[in-house]
Design a binder for these strands. Sequence first.
DNA 1: TAGGCCATCTGGTCCT
DNA 2: AGGACCAGATGGCCTA
Length: 359
Amino acid sequence: MLTRLFSEVLPDVQKLAGWADDSESEDSKTKDDDQDHLGDEDLDDGDAAEGSSRAQSEMAGDDDDDDDAEDEDCGDETEGDKPKKRGPKKRKMTPARMERSKVRRQKANARERTRMHDLNSALDNLRKVVPCYSKTQKLSKIETLRLAKNYIWALGEILRNGKRPDVVSYVQTLCKGLSQPTTNLVAGCLQLNTRNFLTEQCPDGSRFHVPNSPFSVHPYSYPCPRLSSPQYQPGSSAHNVRNHSYGSGYDAVYQGGASPDYNSPDYEGHHSPPVCVNGNFSVRQQESVSPDTDRNYHYAMHYSGLPGSRPPAAHGLPFGPSGARSGGAHSENIPPFHDVHLHHDRAPAYEELNAFFHN
DNA sequence: TAGGCCATCTGGTCCT
DNA sequence: AGGACCAGATGGCCTA
């Protein structure tokens, strides 16, 4: 069920994307003006990066650890009329104390490394459950979160409307706010034939339609500036997800059509300007359409449980179209895929989603 | 070389 | 006191 997918993925995504509450902004970052304890934190020169100058300036007074005068390094004499600082006095940095501080800092560093590794692991798992996954071309962290957010939104729209969406809206929703390379990758994953968008133009030159499409497709009323833009270089960045520039993706015009109500209060999609989905489909994507892709001219959402609609065997998906999986159903157990894959056949939720898209 | 992305270190803050 | 979480700083790697 979709609700099960929500319950599995949503908490992580909410945490990762910072959805659940924006209360962190109200997190009082009031700096305690009494920072004498900083002097106790000896910086570890061994494994530390060359590091923050602020920290090095903080430790200036700790070098002579065996010095008896403890209070001078607070700079009290320079405070002038200010009262002497209260609170615990700064303690001497004996060699033993420095050693303990060093060990404590190393332990903290190790914990932080582990924590970040866990976070990255969670992101990897998230990459595997969003509609597009490439082992060789990983989505960046921010793009993964954006795509996941869009994906959840799209699924929610399906639940709310109770009917299948048109595929263009679905793709547009998925690609909302994504960079052009990521959009290319997503479109490639969905095997959305760019021919539909780039060449199937109506005589009036302003509307598109998708012939033979099983989906209801809404015409586009506005031409996409990217297609005629000098910056639009067909095939220049297809499948190049990393090291891309977000700049060029933000000046495009959203292409109207049937789409979720992005202005609805429960859609928080204004982090980035919308992208032009049409323009994001590069021609290389079109040119690189393999015979397999041509055979799967219809969108990859057609990978469903029905006979004859399985994904290409070359993908070698370990799971059958029924969504049955050996072992646990938790996303942690999803094995890696060898290349770009759809995920709609890996869980009952996908099966249900497929039902919407299947004729 | 600039810009994007990432890993890591670090200190501050909050919580138990 | 110690751990978790966070954000800033820094440097490395890669690509256009």
